[in-house]
Simulated scan of single mutants.
Amino acid sequence: MAELVKYLTIYFFTMVKFIAGPTMGTVSGLSWIETVLITVAGMMTSVIIFAYLGEKFRKKYLSRIFKKKKKFSKKNRNFVIIWKKWGVFGVTFLTPIIFTPIGGTLLITSMGESKKKFIPYMLFSAIFWSLSFSTFFHFFVSKINL
């Protein structure tokens, strides 16, 4: 039961913040492959949920929060620069390290991008960054005696 709670905790944290998977997986003693798989599963669950419910979520909740039209913030400008320069692939690739899985998905859906196009890119991004971060934390950071 304790193992299941550990897996679910890491999984749910990764749905919200990607880096939680590799860090918590390493700290909690999961194997490298378990950490990679849970991290990818957590991010992709978030992506799929918000890809299909993102438009409804944005209309129902975010419109209430942001009633007034605001000028572009620095964060918005950076997103537009990334979008214009690299498009959907750039945003999906940077989602785990700059945006959150939820934030990146909502940004892409707000641009009207096809789910069939960006979900495979998100999967590629999740696998790439999960392998990278999990390798770094498991084989380098965990060896440092603090």
Score class of each variant (00 low, 15 high):
Met1Val: 09
Met1Ser: 13
Ala2Asp: 15
Val5Thr: 14
Val5Leu: 14
Lys6Thr: 10
Lys6Ile: 13
Leu8Lys: 06
Thr9Cys: 10
Thr9Val: 10
Tyr11Trp: 10
Phe12Glu: 09
Thr14Ser: 15
Phe18Tyr: 14
Phe18Asp: 05
Met24Lys: 02
Thr26Asp: 01
Val27Pro: 06
Val36Ser: 03
Val36Gly: 02
Leu37Gly: 07
Gly42Val: 01
Ser46His: 08
Val47Glu: 00
Ile49Gly: 01
Ile49Phe: 14
Phe50Leu: 10
Phe50His: 03
Tyr52Arg: 04
Tyr52Gly: 01
Leu53Asn: 03
Gly54Asp: 05
Phe57Ser: 05
Phe57Gly: 01
Lys59Asp: 13
Tyr61Phe: 15
Leu62Cys: 01
Ser63Val: 06
Phe66Glu: 04
Phe66His: 05
Lys67Gly: 07
Lys67Ile: 04
Lys69Ala: 11
Lys69Phe: 11
Ser73Cys: 13
Lys74Trp: 05
Asn78Lys: 11
Phe79His: 09
Ile81Arg: 13
Ile82Gly: 02
Trp83Ala: 03
Lys84Arg: 10
Val88Asp: 00
Val88Asn: 06
Phe89Trp: 11
Phe89His: 08
Thr95Arg: 00
Phe99Trp: 13
Thr100Val: 05
Pro101Gly: 10
Ile102Ala: 13
Ile102His: 01
Gly103Gln: 02
Gly103Trp: 09
Gly103Val: 03
Gly104Thr: 09
Thr105Trp: 00
Leu106Arg: 04
Leu107Ala: 06
Ile108Glu: 01
Ser110Ile: 10
Gly112Asp: 02
Glu113Asp: 00
Lys115His: 06
Pro120Thr: 02
Pro120Asn: 07
Tyr121Ile: 11
Met122Asn: 12
Met122Tyr: 03
Leu123Ile: 08
Leu123His: 09
Ser125Cys: 03
Ile127Asp: 11
Ser130Tyr: 08
Leu131Asn: 04
Phe133Ala: 14
Ser134Met: 09
Thr135Leu: 15
Phe140Cys: 10
Phe140Trp: 15
Phe140His: 12
Phe140Asn: 08
Lys143Cys: 07
Ile144Glu: 05
Ile144Asn: 10
Leu146Ile: 08
